[in-house]
């Protein structure tokens, strides 16, 4: 049986899709058969971030409507053969994701994969509820700012009440906090909440901290999941995140402000 992981946040633009792509790739890199699903009907950008937008013929919605088989809609990743992407369509029909349809597709994926990663849309409406419904674990992506923390809190409450596990009275969904776009410098300058502030407010175990970095934009422009950006801080931070999810201990990195080196200071770097 596959484990289903929802990447969610409440607030928009915090890094869910970036994280879904990097995290799913990280699981696949470690040998797990993984599928990543785009639940953001209407916006659809997971395929761009994964660099497979040109290969989309059928999608999640077609499969739900019985217009295509799951095998026809699954796209194999460019670099990893045990990673698949299930893209979504740009339809504006909000009812496209029927509860039964999603359940049917999830049941089928359960047979084929070790991990199912669900990229949730922002908000707390139907799309987000569908994405979290089947979750066994949730990665709550949060930026170090008050509004993002508040929305994450909201979504954690919804996870505890509206997931399938909650409805069936099973063990609750495993909660993980992922702090993204973290800038130690801006924390020090008091412009952002610190890691400690966010932990204290949300009280959810911390899975990782992804620093703010221009590499993310480079990666998504090239359609390469950030975990493949060799040597970059974000690639290492995502790798640590995956390792921790799989039960390894990793010290936190990229949370202290870098001391500018003697030479940098000398030459005004």
């Amino acid at each position: 049986m596959a484990q289903t992981i929802v990447v969610t946040s409440g607030k928009g633009g915090v890094g869910k899709t970036t994280t879904s792509a990097a995290f799913a790739s990280g699981l696949a890199l470690r040998g797990h058969r993984t599928v990543v699903i785009d639940f953001d009907v209407g916006l659809r950008n997971l395929d761009l971030v994964m660099g497979c937008e040109r290969r989309v013929v059928y999608d999640f919605i077609n499969v739900i409507h019985g217009e295509a088989r799951l095998q026809q809609a699954l796209i194999r990743d460019r670099t990893l053969d045990n990673l698949y992407i299930l893209p979504t369509s740009q339809t504006r029909d909000k009812e496209a994701l029927s509860a039964e349809g999603v359940a049917r597709v999830m049941a089928e994926l359960q047979q084929e994969f070790d991990y199912i990663v669900c990229d949730s849309p922002a908000g707390i409406e139907t799309g987000a509820l569908r994405a979290l419904y089947h979750a066994d674990a949730a990665i709550v992506v949060t930026n170090p700012e008050v509004s993002s923390v508040r929305d994450s809190d909201r979504i954690l409450g919804i996870l505890a009440a509206r997931s399938k596990r909650a409805e069936e009275g099973r063990e609750p969904v495993q909660e993980h906090l992922l702090l993204t776009r973290y800038s130690p410098k801006r924390v020090q300058e008091g412009e952002m909440l610190s890691l400690e502030d966010v932990k204290e407010l949300l009280r959810v175990p911390l899975l990782g901290v992804i620093p703010e970095s221009p590499v993310i934009l480079q990666a998504s422009n090239q359609g390469i999941p950030a975990i493949h950006m060799k040597g970059s801080d974000v690639a290492q931070a995502y790798e640590d995140t995956v390792a921790r999810f799989l039960g390894e201990e990793r010290p936190l990195r990229f949370v202290q402000q870098e001391k500018s080196s003697f030479f940098k200071r000398l030459f005004g770097g």
Partner: peptide
């Protein structure tokens, strides 16, 4: 958590964790 509500009808209420904003 934000958006959640708990009513102890006819009772006292004891809460061991936080009552978050909202």
């Amino acid at each position: 958590r934000s958006g959640q509500r708990h009513y102890a009808r006819g009772q006292d209420l004891i809460c061991l964790a936080t009552v978050n904003a909202g």
